[in-house]
Protein backbone atom coordinates (compact mmCIF):
# COMPACT_ATOMS: atom_id res chain seq x y z
CA UNK A 1 0.00 0.00 0.00
CA UNK A 2 2.86 2.34 0.82
CA UNK A 3 4.14 1.72 -2.65
CA UNK A 4 0.89 2.85 -4.28
CA UNK A 5 0.86 6.01 -2.17
CA UNK A 6 4.44 6.70 -3.18
CA UNK A 7 3.71 6.16 -6.84
CA UNK A 8 0.64 8.37 -6.89
CA UNK A 9 2.51 11.13 -5.06
CA UNK A 10 5.34 10.97 -7.59
CA UNK A 11 2.83 11.00 -10.45
CA UNK A 12 0.88 14.02 -9.20
CA UNK A 13 4.12 15.77 -8.30
CA UNK A 14 5.65 15.31 -11.73
CA UNK A 15 2.58 16.08 -13.80
CA UNK A 16 1.00 18.97 -11.89
CA UNK A 17 2.73 20.30 -8.79
CA UNK A 18 6.23 20.49 -10.17
CA UNK A 19 5.18 20.67 -13.81
CA UNK A 20 8.26 20.26 -15.97
CA UNK A 21 7.59 23.29 -18.15
CA UNK A 22 5.74 25.77 -16.01
CA UNK A 23 7.43 25.29 -12.65
CA UNK A 24 10.83 23.77 -13.51
CA UNK A 25 11.32 25.60 -16.82
CA UNK A 26 12.64 22.61 -18.72
CA UNK A 27 11.61 22.10 -22.33
CA UNK A 28 10.87 25.78 -22.90
CA UNK A 29 12.25 25.73 -26.46
CA UNK A 30 9.60 23.37 -27.91
CA UNK A 31 7.03 24.94 -25.59
CA UNK A 32 7.50 28.22 -27.45
CA UNK A 33 8.52 26.83 -30.83
CA UNK A 34 6.00 24.04 -31.45
CA UNK A 35 2.91 25.42 -29.70
CA UNK A 36 1.22 27.11 -32.65
CA UNK A 37 -1.32 24.38 -33.37
CA UNK A 38 -2.96 21.94 -30.99
CA UNK A 39 -2.35 18.83 -33.11
CA UNK A 40 1.35 19.66 -33.54
CA UNK A 41 1.65 20.34 -29.83
CA UNK A 42 0.01 17.04 -28.99
CA UNK A 43 2.35 15.21 -31.37
CA UNK A 44 5.34 16.82 -29.74
CA UNK A 45 4.02 15.97 -26.30
CA UNK A 46 3.56 12.32 -27.25
CA UNK A 47 7.03 12.14 -28.78
CA UNK A 48 8.60 13.61 -25.64
CA UNK A 49 6.66 11.28 -23.35
CA UNK A 50 7.76 8.31 -25.42
CA UNK A 51 11.44 9.25 -25.48
CA UNK A 52 11.50 10.31 -21.84
CA UNK A 53 10.19 6.88 -20.81
CA UNK A 54 12.84 5.04 -22.80
CA UNK A 55 15.58 7.36 -21.57
CA UNK A 56 14.43 6.85 -17.98
CA UNK A 57 14.51 3.08 -18.43
CA UNK A 58 18.06 3.21 -19.77
CA UNK A 59 19.36 5.72 -17.27
CA UNK A 60 17.80 3.93 -14.29
CA UNK A 61 19.41 0.66 -15.39
CA UNK A 62 22.82 2.21 -15.97
CA UNK A 63 22.72 4.25 -12.77
CA UNK A 64 21.69 1.34 -10.58
CA UNK A 65 23.96 -1.31 -12.03
CA UNK A 66 26.99 0.69 -13.16
CA UNK A 67 27.27 4.26 -11.94
CA UNK A 68 26.16 4.44 -8.32
CA UNK A 69 28.86 3.87 -5.68
CA UNK A 70 29.29 0.15 -5.16
CA UNK A 71 27.08 -0.80 -8.10
CA UNK A 72 27.09 -4.55 -8.79
CA UNK A 73 28.36 -4.49 -12.36
CA UNK A 74 31.18 -2.00 -11.88
CA UNK A 75 32.22 -3.70 -8.65
CA UNK A 76 32.34 -7.04 -10.46
CA UNK A 77 34.49 -5.64 -13.27
CA UNK A 78 36.74 -3.78 -10.86
CA UNK A 79 37.11 -7.01 -8.90
CA UNK A 80 39.48 -8.30 -11.59
CA UNK A 81 41.91 -5.45 -11.03
CA UNK A 82 41.82 -4.70 -7.33
CA UNK A 83 40.99 -6.30 -3.97
CA UNK A 84 37.31 -6.91 -3.26
CA UNK A 85 36.96 -4.21 -0.55
CA UNK A 86 38.14 -1.37 -2.80
CA UNK A 87 36.23 -2.78 -5.75
CA UNK A 88 33.00 -2.54 -3.76
CA UNK A 89 33.42 1.23 -3.36
CA UNK A 90 34.05 2.10 -6.99
CA UNK A 91 32.23 5.35 -7.70
CA UNK A 92 31.52 6.24 -11.32
CA UNK A 93 28.98 9.00 -10.72
CA UNK A 94 31.37 11.53 -12.25
CA UNK A 95 30.55 10.01 -15.63
CA UNK A 96 26.79 10.26 -15.27
CA UNK A 97 26.17 13.39 -17.36
CA UNK A 98 28.07 12.00 -20.33
CA UNK A 99 26.35 8.66 -20.03
CA UNK A 100 22.88 10.20 -19.82
CA UNK A 101 23.28 12.49 -22.77
CA UNK A 102 24.50 9.61 -24.90
CA UNK A 103 21.70 7.38 -23.66
CA UNK A 104 19.24 10.06 -24.73
CA UNK A 105 20.85 10.59 -28.15
CA UNK A 106 21.02 6.87 -28.78
CA UNK A 107 17.43 6.24 -27.75
CA UNK A 108 16.21 9.07 -29.96
CA UNK A 109 18.15 7.60 -32.89
CA UNK A 110 16.79 4.11 -32.34
CA UNK A 111 13.24 5.31 -31.88
CA UNK A 112 13.53 7.29 -35.09
CA UNK A 113 14.89 4.32 -37.04
CA UNK A 114 12.32 1.92 -35.63
CA UNK A 115 9.36 4.18 -36.23
CA UNK A 116 10.50 5.04 -39.74
CA UNK A 117 10.81 1.38 -40.69
CA UNK A 118 7.77 -0.16 -39.01
CA UNK A 119 5.25 2.63 -38.77
CA UNK A 120 5.69 5.20 -41.54
CA UNK A 121 2.38 6.92 -40.74
CA UNK A 122 3.43 7.56 -37.18
CA UNK A 123 6.81 8.72 -38.45
CA UNK A 124 5.11 11.26 -40.68
CA UNK A 125 3.10 12.62 -37.78
CA UNK A 126 5.82 12.97 -35.16
CA UNK A 127 9.07 11.95 -36.79
CA UNK A 128 9.95 15.55 -37.52
CA UNK A 129 10.04 16.31 -33.80
CA UNK A 130 12.40 13.50 -32.91
CA UNK A 131 15.73 15.17 -33.75
CA UNK A 132 14.59 18.23 -31.81
CA UNK A 133 14.04 16.13 -28.75
CA UNK A 134 17.71 15.28 -28.23
CA UNK A 135 18.37 18.82 -27.05
CA UNK A 136 15.17 18.96 -25.01
CA UNK A 137 16.13 19.62 -21.41
CA UNK A 138 13.04 17.85 -20.08
CA UNK A 139 14.53 14.45 -20.82
CA UNK A 140 17.89 15.09 -19.23
CA UNK A 141 16.06 16.69 -16.31
CA UNK A 142 14.07 13.48 -15.73
CA UNK A 143 17.29 11.43 -15.84
CA UNK A 144 18.94 13.77 -13.32
CA UNK A 145 15.98 13.56 -10.98
CA UNK A 146 16.12 9.77 -11.10
CA UNK A 147 19.85 9.91 -10.41
CA UNK A 148 19.32 12.20 -7.40
CA UNK A 149 16.91 9.67 -5.98
CA UNK A 150 19.31 6.79 -6.42
CA UNK A 151 22.71 8.27 -5.64
CA UNK A 152 21.72 11.17 -3.41
CA UNK A 153 19.63 9.33 -0.80
CA UNK A 154 20.87 8.89 2.74
CA UNK A 155 20.18 5.20 3.01
CA UNK A 156 20.14 2.57 0.29
CA UNK A 157 16.64 1.36 1.14
CA UNK A 158 15.16 4.66 -0.07
CA UNK A 159 16.68 4.43 -3.56
CA UNK A 160 14.08 4.49 -6.29
CA UNK A 161 13.25 1.28 -8.09
CA UNK A 162 12.40 1.02 -11.78
CA UNK A 163 8.67 1.48 -11.19
CA UNK A 164 9.05 4.85 -9.44
CA UNK A 165 11.50 6.07 -12.07
CA UNK A 166 9.19 5.14 -14.93
CA UNK A 167 6.21 6.78 -13.22
CA UNK A 168 8.22 9.99 -12.81
CA UNK A 169 9.21 9.89 -16.47
CA UNK A 170 5.78 9.08 -17.89
CA UNK A 171 3.94 11.62 -15.78
CA UNK A 172 6.64 14.22 -16.38
CA UNK A 173 5.95 13.71 -20.08
CA UNK A 174 2.21 13.92 -19.44
CA UNK A 175 2.73 17.19 -17.58
CA UNK A 176 4.73 18.51 -20.52
CA UNK A 177 1.94 17.46 -22.91
CA UNK A 178 -0.73 19.12 -20.75
CA UNK A 179 1.21 22.37 -20.63
CA UNK A 180 2.07 22.51 -24.32
CA UNK A 181 -1.47 21.58 -25.44
CA UNK A 182 -3.06 24.22 -23.20
CA UNK A 183 -0.56 26.71 -24.55
CA UNK A 184 -1.32 25.77 -28.17
CA UNK A 185 -5.05 26.13 -27.52
CA UNK A 186 -4.53 29.60 -26.12
CA UNK A 187 -2.23 30.58 -28.97
CA UNK A 188 -4.77 29.53 -31.58
CA UNK A 189 -7.19 31.97 -29.98
CA UNK A 190 -4.46 34.54 -29.58
CA UNK A 191 -3.97 34.67 -33.34
CA UNK A 192 -7.35 36.38 -33.54
CA UNK A 193 -6.40 39.03 -30.99
CA UNK A 194 -4.82 42.37 -31.57
CA UNK A 195 -1.56 41.99 -29.67
CA UNK A 196 0.73 45.05 -29.49
CA UNK A 197 3.40 44.59 -32.13
CA UNK A 198 6.51 44.33 -29.91
CA UNK A 199 4.83 41.64 -27.83
CA UNK A 200 3.86 39.42 -30.77
CA UNK A 201 5.36 35.96 -30.96
CA UNK A 202 7.53 34.78 -28.09
CA UNK A 203 6.88 37.69 -25.71
CA UNK A 204 3.11 37.24 -25.43
CA UNK A 205 3.60 33.47 -25.24
CA UNK A 206 5.86 33.95 -22.23
CA UNK A 207 3.39 36.26 -20.53
CA UNK A 208 0.57 33.78 -21.09
CA UNK A 209 2.88 31.04 -19.74
CA UNK A 210 3.37 33.20 -16.64
CA UNK A 211 -0.38 33.29 -16.05
CA UNK A 212 -0.60 29.55 -16.64
CA UNK A 213 2.23 29.03 -14.15
CA UNK A 214 0.21 30.97 -11.56
CA UNK A 215 -2.60 28.52 -12.19
CA UNK A 216 -0.32 25.54 -11.78
CA UNK A 217 1.07 26.97 -8.55
CA UNK A 218 -2.39 26.38 -7.16
CA UNK A 219 -1.59 22.67 -7.17
CA UNK A 220 1.08 23.21 -4.50
CA UNK A 221 0.11 21.37 -1.37
CA UNK A 222 -2.13 18.90 -3.16
CA UNK A 223 0.47 16.23 -2.46
CA UNK A 224 0.28 16.55 1.32
CA UNK A 225 -3.52 16.43 1.16
CA UNK A 226 -3.42 13.44 -1.14
CA UNK A 227 -0.98 11.65 1.11
CA UNK A 228 -3.21 12.22 4.09
CA UNK A 229 -6.30 11.10 2.24
CA UNK A 230 -4.58 7.92 1.11
CA UNK A 231 -2.98 7.12 4.47
CA UNK A 232 -6.20 7.77 6.35
CA UNK A 233 -8.16 5.66 3.88
CA UNK A 234 -5.86 2.66 3.94
CA UNK A 235 -4.26 2.35 7.32
CA UNK A 236 -5.97 4.44 9.95
CA UNK A 237 -5.05 1.76 12.45
CA UNK A 238 -1.38 2.34 11.82
CA UNK A 239 -1.62 6.00 12.69
CA UNK A 240 -3.37 5.18 15.93
CA UNK A 241 -0.55 2.85 16.80
CA UNK A 242 2.23 5.36 16.19
CA UNK A 243 1.23 7.89 18.74
CA UNK A 244 -2.06 8.93 20.26
CA UNK A 245 -1.04 12.57 20.33
CA UNK A 246 -0.02 12.45 16.71
CA UNK A 247 -3.49 11.39 15.73
CA UNK A 248 -4.96 14.28 17.66
CA UNK A 249 -2.70 16.63 15.75
CA UNK A 250 -3.72 15.01 12.50
CA UNK A 251 -7.44 15.40 13.01
CA UNK A 252 -7.04 18.96 14.25
CA UNK A 253 -5.06 19.86 11.18
CA UNK A 254 -7.33 18.07 8.76
CA UNK A 255 -10.21 20.55 8.76
CA UNK A 256 -7.93 23.48 8.00
CA UNK A 257 -6.11 21.41 5.45
CA UNK A 258 -9.31 20.54 3.65
CA UNK A 259 -10.41 24.16 3.60
CA UNK A 260 -7.13 25.36 2.16
CA UNK A 261 -7.11 22.56 -0.38
CA UNK A 262 -10.55 23.49 -1.62
CA UNK A 263 -9.27 27.01 -2.08
CA UNK A 264 -6.27 25.70 -3.94
CA UNK A 265 -8.34 23.57 -6.23
CA UNK A 266 -10.57 26.53 -6.96
CA UNK A 267 -7.61 28.77 -7.77
CA UNK A 268 -6.03 26.14 -9.95
CA UNK A 269 -9.26 25.65 -11.78
CA UNK A 270 -9.70 29.34 -12.37
CA UNK A 271 -6.10 29.80 -13.40
CA UNK A 272 -6.25 27.26 -16.16
CA UNK A 273 -9.72 27.86 -17.39
CA UNK A 274 -9.81 31.64 -17.32
CA UNK A 275 -7.54 32.36 -20.27
CA UNK A 276 -9.40 29.80 -22.32
CA UNK A 277 -12.74 31.29 -21.40
CA UNK A 278 -11.43 34.71 -22.15
CA UNK A 279 -10.48 33.45 -25.59
CA UNK A 280 -13.92 32.04 -26.22
CA UNK A 281 -15.62 35.20 -25.13
CA UNK A 282 -13.50 37.11 -27.55
CA UNK A 283 -14.43 34.72 -30.28
CA UNK A 284 -18.11 35.28 -29.70
CA UNK A 285 -17.45 39.00 -29.65
CA UNK A 286 -16.30 38.94 -33.21
CA UNK A 287 -19.65 38.82 -35.04
CA UNK A 288 -20.79 41.89 -33.12
CA UNK A 289 -17.64 43.70 -34.04
CA UNK A 290 -18.15 42.90 -37.66
CA UNK A 291 -21.68 44.18 -37.49
CA UNK A 292 -20.61 47.47 -35.98
CA UNK A 293 -17.95 47.83 -38.62
Amino acid sequence: MNYIIDISLIAVGAALINNFVLINFVGICPFIGVSRRVDMAFGMGCAVTFVITIAALISWTITTFVLTPGAPLSAWVAGFFMPAETAATVDLTVLCYIVYIFAISASVQFVEMYVRKYNPDLYKSFGVFLPLITTNCAILFACLKIKDNIVGVDNPADAWDLGRSLVLAIFGGVGFTIAIVIMAGIREELDLCDVPKPLRGAAITLIVAGILAMGFMGFTGVNSGLEKALTAGTSGAEIARVNSGLEKALTAGKAEQAAVQNDNAAYAHKGIVDPLNAGHERETDFPEMERTI
Binding site: A203, I204, T205, L206, G210
Partner: peptide
Protein backbone atom coordinates in the same frame (compact mmCIF):
# COMPACT_ATOMS: atom_id res chain seq x y z
CA UNK B 1 10.76 35.29 -7.29
CA UNK B 2 8.31 32.45 -7.97
CA UNK B 3 8.09 30.72 -11.38
CA UNK B 4 5.31 32.92 -12.85
CA UNK B 5 7.43 36.02 -12.19
CA UNK B 6 10.15 34.60 -14.42
CA UNK B 7 7.80 34.22 -17.38
CA UNK B 8 6.19 37.63 -16.86
CA UNK B 9 9.46 39.52 -16.40
CA UNK B 10 11.14 37.90 -19.37
CA UNK B 11 8.05 38.33 -21.57
CA UNK B 12 7.80 42.02 -20.79
CA UNK B 13 11.55 42.65 -21.12
CA UNK B 14 11.53 40.83 -24.45
CA UNK B 15 8.65 43.03 -25.58
CA UNK B 16 10.58 46.12 -24.47
CA UNK B 17 13.69 45.03 -26.37
CA UNK B 18 11.63 44.38 -29.51
CA UNK B 19 9.94 47.76 -29.18
Amino acid sequence: VLPPGAFLTFGLLLGAVNW
